[in-house]
Design a protein around this nucleic acid. Structure first.
Length: 274
DNA sequence: GGTGCGATCGCCT
DNA sequence: GGCGATCGCACCG
């Protein structure tokens, strides 16, 4: 095990529980300390906030583009919570039988799905939870945020999550704070009133690119079937869920999809060589 | 580690 | 009146 340089600034302290964080993350953190690329989180210069044009992409493209981006939530007391998007799902709109907007159905609840790309869609589920989406290009299409990697404000997130749990429940590890669509809403205090707000201009929640990683290589993105839509026939099996391979914060792993992807990439590399 | 089940209520038919 | 883009916990191995 090589000892990696850590600076004395307050790097996000992430407890991944039993395992080490993936190499990719360690690399990303140590990279932030080089002189050429000052840390986006601790330099005076703000990272770049993603504007309107980012959200004007087809749903699947946007779902993949979200991966690696940083969701920022500014609380009313000024505290900024930060977390990297590591898992998303695409809900395509009219044709997609698993979407709230299936068949072009537009109701009071799902109106945000039909609003301009970048509009936040927050809806309650099972009476007790919330889920957060962001609309994309395409009539009624939206991207569900499923899991995040906490980067900053983990203790505040833990407090927000604990508030909804039994007293005496065991302390959550960092990787457990946002590893599910409703968990991330709790951890970031995403409220129902965020529904229909514009992620490109809102002052309490927005998205930033990670200056250390402009794009995530396709080889790191697993495509798998979506979660919790088993009753929707063929649409239940379509590969419309996307996550960062090997990331400890992903809510549900799909080993079959990962294996297939691996064998596919092996085949590709053989083709390239031969 | 994996699986099964109950909670709980707004939304839609 | 039925159901759900979930979660936490009990239980099993």
């Amino acid at each position: 095990m090589t000892t990696r340089k850590r600076n004395n600034l307050s790097l996000p302290q992430t407890d991944y529980g039993d395992g080490e964080p993936p190499k990719r993350l360690i690399q990303s953190q140590s990279d932030t300390n080089t002189a050429d690329h000052p840390s986006p989180y601790f330099s005076m210069k703000d990272p770049v906030r993603l504007s309107d044009s980012f959200f004007h992409q087809p749903c699947v493209d946007l779902a993949k583009a979200f991966l690696g981006k940083v969701l920022v939530r500014k609380l009313t007391d000024g505290t900024e919570l930060r977390a990297r998007v590591v898992e998303t799902e695409a809900y395509l709109g009219g044709e997609d039988k698993a979407s709230h907007s299936a068949g072009g159905k537009r109701t009071e609840r799902n109106t945000a799905m039909f609003m301009k790309p970048g509009t936040i869609y927050v809806y309650p589920i099972y009476g007790i939870y919330l889920c957060m989406n962001v609309s994309s290009q395409g009539e009624g299409a939206a991207v569900l945020l499923r899991s995040l990697e906490p980067l900053r404000g983990q203790d505040v997130m833990r407090g927000l999550r604990a508030a909804k749990r039994k007293a005496g429940a065991k302390t959550l590890k960092d990787k457990e704070l946002c590893n599910g669509p409703s968990k991330l809403c709790q951890a970031l205090d995403i409220q129902r009133c965020f529904d229909r707000r514009d992620m490109a201009t809102d002052t309490e929640v927005w998205l930033e690119r990670d200056p250390e990683r402009e794009t995530v290589p396709a080889g790191e993105v697993v495509s798998a079937h979506r979660i919790g839509v088993e009753s929707h026939g063929e649409w239940a099996t379509k590969p419309l869920r996307f996550y960062l391979r090997g990331h400890p914060c992903v809510s549900v792993l799909n080993r079959d999809a990962e294996r297939q992807m691996h064998s596919q990439s092996s085949t590709d590399s053989q083709k390239t060589v031969s």
